[in-house]
Amino acid sequence: MSAAMYERMRVNPKFQKLVKERGRFAWTLTFIVLILFYGFFLMVAFNPAAMGKAVSDGSMLTVGVAVELFLFIFFWILSAYYVKVANSKFDDMTQELIKQAHKEGKQ
């Protein structure tokens, strides 16, 4: 039964659209996180002095700490954005796809 459902969904152009859009979205966010994280780690490894500079004269906040705090917050905001989009837009598309396949199965 599910094999037939899968077949009907597979040929639906909406499925191709869902997979393409959601895939691109997830991969883009993943690349952002990986590049920022490993970029930061490489900066730390190759140029620790730059990371130890104060953000402004007399401030006790160093560039490294500021960047890292930003990464903590930014990564979480990206996560929240992903959950918001995936749980509304993409899940709606999926539900519609399943509903359509069900309907086609009854005809």
């Binding site: 990986l34 780690f41 990464l71 990564f75 992903y82």
Partner: peptide, 21 residues
């Protein structure tokens, strides 16, 4: 000091990737 903070980011950064992928 800062080295400990770096460790924490490494412990944390896996989560968004787990979520997306």
């Amino acid at each position: 000091g800062f080295d400990g903070y770096l460790y924490m980011l490494a412990f944390f950064a896996g989560w968004p990737v787990i979520l997306f992928m």
